[in-house]
Design a protein around this nucleic acid. Structure first.
Length: 885
RNA sequence: AGGCGCGUAGCUCAGUUGGCUAGAGCACUUCCUUGACGUGGAAGGGGUCAGCGGUUCGAGUCCGCUCGUGCCUACCA
């Protein structure tokens, strides 16, 4: 598109214009007819559609776009899709709050139902709706956000292929996710099991190891005396006295001298009078506490591990809601030697939360006769306060408990080695990020629990038969057929059954759970490739080239994606992982919504321009955290303005000379050849950096070269460039200017897509080759290459450019020192230097003369072989007495 | 407690496999102005490269230790 050259640069106009152009011309479209080898595929992170994006998102998404734009200019067919993550808890909560609804998966779908904004009063009594209606409501709400996100991405100039969009809760993603589950069933990589699992009592759902984090919390050691059957006692220390009722054993280290006499005997728990074995176990640390400890089902992960290797029963006292459940002390496993007394004690805590129960138990333990040995309190001292790590669901606010429930798991523990190997096959940028992956895989302790007791998400394509008594037959689930997907087992019935048989003895029930949101997110490559639906497309798009993401989700998104790709196809999902750092606030804390220190990007794009914001992002190397600093936006804007002004000047010369007369064959002047020589090296270095995903270095190289081009070359060559008396010198300068500008524009195009496209359109869009019948865009132009100037010889003297710059600098210095304008004429200029440098200098003397206002006869040269400490030359400048006309 | 980073000018950061007098931008000081650009240009001040020790002809760069800082993982009796 040919554009008039504006006098002033108004980024808002320019950006609006080109944004529209790129879209209407399909500049960023993926061409399905091109083969894999010439295609570059990105596994774009689908942003969570809840609330708003902040500068941290702008930062990392720009990094991806830089690499994509570079690859596109290398001639690659680009697949750069965009997804929206609207699956899972954040959306569930927001839809509930906005529409005052709640999901009841047991309700039937109502076709004509529409969500409405509700008053605060109405929201107090949320309307119950079916799962599919809830998903519809989510669609409606997230669509608005997605539109806002898309607008921002477009403004920022992300060269996304907007025809390739997905949302993680849409039918396509649900199908892929369920298809993945069925494939894992077939490969026997998934199983369901009733076992103690990490459980959030607030959200009332099972969790996976990756969802859990440690938080430092205050706690207290309680020293509690246990009686020994047949006489005697010992003291354990615990931070969880409320779990005393769930104690199944007492253990000490086998080598611990203090307890040798107790092994094999039974202990009697205080308050509840349960007889539990005293056992030697490596699990106990003699150094810690009293060296002897109680094992409860379940206080922590160690208890679970220990219990698994024992043959002891489970004493599940904490229910799904985190409250203490009723217990019968007259029967196993809770059988007490004094059941009435145990029941009386327990009546105090039955139905309490963990916190309430703890308080009560401590009070009870402090009473006389609380133990079963002698008439003294079992709690033998005041609790000792400590700080200790406690496991929490990362989105939760109550400590996790271990609750025994039936869950689906993906087998990852037995495949650690294979998954480590897969990690090795991928190139990580920066490379040390692979260590985080490896550490995580090595440290895994649980298979991947993928079922969640939530409503909004991808359901399991599974039903269970009910026997005559109405009990579910979990051992022989009925799986959906791949052709049925996506399926909602609570709304649809399995083959061979009718809806009337749902929940009836001899009938069936649907699996009520939904999958972990990562079970779907881990399939983003397969979602984009249409795995299982379009094998030809899948073959063209999988595995991908690049996964951009941040480092805190290596343990989740990267790990799960690698695991799924390996399980389904024995492949790596992508060849490169590209990790952006974080944006830190001025106090060097991570910018995040929860900390309330976020900066939103809208006004920055307005104020500084999209190019300037992209410049800011482009300066940060991969994996490096960056402090938020608005000065960098200003630098970016200055670069944009400089490009605009320098281009305006060059364009003026090209117009005046006549575009049709410009030829690289005319580059005969020493200075111009020296410029092109230096450009060759810039192009090579920038290309090398970009190929190594180091866009920041590529930018820094291009930028340094460009400012030097403006300050030195343009100053030296400008007079010759419009001198009509010197046609060959002029032709040489104009051709050098044209090529150099085209190189700079293309080097900056990935970083500054708007200004470069704008300037490109003034001159180069006409000469550039239009592809596919589309109008030429710089973003479809070829990445600059030294091949373009093979016809231009190297300069005669390798140092002529440096000699010119040094001499001009000396002239400027003299004028600056004398506080004169740079246009002040020079009376005499004496240069001392070695013969080679003097020869190089003389080859470019005409330009120095015109730029420095030195007449040809004012120069004098003296050969000197002496080494000079400050430069190539010793230069004496004598200024004229007065400014000439 | 282990692992991985980081510590260079007042601020934000470069510094490639060890190699001339350690760089850039911003900020600061002084000056220049009208034909690409004051959103510009020129000149200048400012650093015991966290500290200590080692290898080397030579260390910001390699090795060891220490300190500070951040993240990841672990630690729940």
């Amino acid at each position: 598109m040919k554009r008039e050259v504006p006098k002033k640069y108004k980024h808002t106009d320019v950006e609006a214009n080109w944004k529209e152009f790129w879209d209407s011309e399909g500049v960023y479209e993926w061409d399905p007819s091109i083969d894999r080898e010439h295609t570059f595929i990105v596994d774009t992170p689908p942003p969570t559609v809840s609330g708003s994006l902040h500068v941290g998102h702008v930062f990392s998404y720009t990094h991806t776009d830089l690499i994509v734009r570079f690859q596109r200019m290398l001639g690659k067919n680009i697949m750069y899709p965009m997804g929206w993550d609207d699956n899972g808890l954040p959306t569930e909560r927001r839809v509930q709050n906005t529409f005052g609804i709640t999901c009841n998966p047991r309700l039937p779908y109502q076709e004509d139902w529409k969500p409405e904004q509700k008053s605060a009063k109405q929201k107090k009594k949320p309307e119950e709706i079916s799962r599919q209606n809830f998903i519809d409501a989510c669609d409606i709400l997230t669509k608005e956000d997605e539109k806002a996100f898309e607008d921002l991405w477009r403004s920022l100039g992300l060269s996304v292929e907007w025809k390739q969009q997905y949302a993680t809760i849409d039918a396509h993603c649900r199908r892929v996710s369920q298809y993945s589950f069925l494939d894992l069933v077939e490969k026997q990589l998934v199983y369901s099991e009733e076992s103690p699992t990490m459980w959030d009592v607030g959200f009332q759902t099972a969790l996976a190891q990756a969802d859990v984090e440690d938080r430092e919390k205050p706690g207290a050691y309680h020293d509690i005396r246990f009686a020994v059957e047949g006489g005697g006692s010992f003291t354990i220390a615990t931070t969880r006295p409320e779990l005393l009722v769930a104690c199944i054993a007492v253990v000490a280290h086998p080598s611990d001298e203090r307890y040798q006499g107790l092994f094999g005997k039974s202990a009697i728990t205080p308050l509840f009078g349960a007889k539990v074995p005293i056992t030697p176990s490596e699990h106990a640390d003699p150094e810690k506490g009293s060296g002897i400890m109680m094992v409860c089902t379940f206080g922590d992960a160690a208890d679970v591990e220990w219990w698994k290797t024992s043959s002891l029963p489970i004493k599940q006292v904490i229910g799904r809601n985190g409250r203490f459940e009723s217990v019968d002390f007259t029967k196993e496993p809770f059988l007490s030697i004094d059941a009435p007394r145990a029941a009386e004690s327990y009546s105090e805590i039955d139905g309490n939360s963990v916190i309430g129960a703890r308080k009560k138990v401590v009070e009870l333990l402090a009473e006389e006769n609380s133990g079963f040995d002698e008439s003294a309190p079992a709690l033998i001292a005041e609790p000792r306060a400590i700080e200790h790590p406690v496991k929490f669901y990362e989105k939760g606010d109550q400590p996790l408990e271990f609750v025994t429930t039936r869950q689906w798991f993906i087998k990852i523990l037995e495949h650690k080695d294979a998954l480590l190997e897969q990690g090795d096959k991928i190139d990580w940028h920066p490379s040390h990020m692979k260590t985080r992956y490896s550490n995580w895989v090595r440290g895994l302790n649980y298979d991947w629990c993928i079922s969640r007791q939530r409503f909004f998400g991808v359901p399991f394509p599974v039903w269970y038969r009910l026997d005559e008594k109405g009990l579910a037959q979990y051992d022989s689930p009925i799986f959906a057929d791949a052709a049925q997907l996506p399926v909602d087992p609570l709304a649809e019935c399995p083959e061979g059954f009718t809806e009337e048989q749902r929940g009836e003895p001899g009938g069936f029930i649907g699996d009520p759970d939904v999958m972990d949101t990562w079970a779907t997110s881990s399939l983003t490559p397969q979602i984009v490739s249409h795995w299982g639906a379009d094998e030809a497309r899948h073959a063209k798009l999988f595995p991908m080239d690049m996964r951009p993401q941040s480092h805190e989700i290596i343990r989740t998104w990267a790990f799960y994606t690698i695991a799924k790709a390996w399980m389904h196809e024995g492949e790596i999902p992508w060849r490169n992982v590209v990790i952006s750092g974080w944006i830190l606030d001025p106090d060097r804390k991570k910018m995040s919504k929860s900390k309330g220190n976020v900066v939103t990007p809208g006004h920055l794009l307005e104020q500084y321009s999209s190019d300037a914001v992209r410049y800011w992002a482009s300066r940060a190397r991969l994996g490096v955290d960056t402090a938020y600093d608005e000065n960098v936006f200003t630098n970016g804007r200055k670069l944009v303005m400089k490009l605009f002004n320098a281009s305006r000047f060059v364009h003026g010369q090209l117009e005046a000379f006549g575009a049709e007369n410009i030829s690289l064959d005319a580059v005969t002047h020493e200075l111009d050849r020296a410029l092109i020589e230096s450009m060759r090296s810039v192009v090579e270095k920038a290309t090398e950096s970009f190929l190594a995903f180091d866009y920041a270095q590529a930018l820094s190289q291009a930028e340094a070269a460009f400012w030097s081009f403006c300050d030195s070359y343009l100053e030296l060559a400008k007079i010759r460039a419009y001198s009509e008396e010197n046609p060959s010198g002029r032709a040489s300068a104009v051709a050098a200017l044209e090529w150099s500008l085209s190189v700079f524009l293309r080097l900056f195009a990935p970083v500054l897509p708007y200004i470069t496209e704008e300037v490109w359109s003034w001159h180069f869009a006409d000469s550039g080759e239009a592809k596919d019948g589309r109008l030429a865009s710089i973003h479809r132009a070829a990445w600059p290459s030294v091949e373009e100037v093979t016809s231009v010889p190297a300069p005669t003297h390798a140092s002529s450019f440096e000699c010119a710059v040094e001499t001009l600098a000396a002239i400027h210095h003299a004028k600056s020192k004398a506080q004169k304008t740079l246009k002040w004429p020079v009376e005499a200029l004496a240069v001392r230097g070695d013969a080679g440098s003097l020869a190089a200098l003389q080859a470019v003397l005409d330009d120095i003369g015109s730029a420095g206002r030195v007449s040809p006869d004012a120069f004098s040269f003296t050969e000197s072989s002496a080494e000079n400490s400050t430069g190539r030359f010793e230069i004496e400048v004598e200024l004229a007495n007065e400014m000439l006309e």
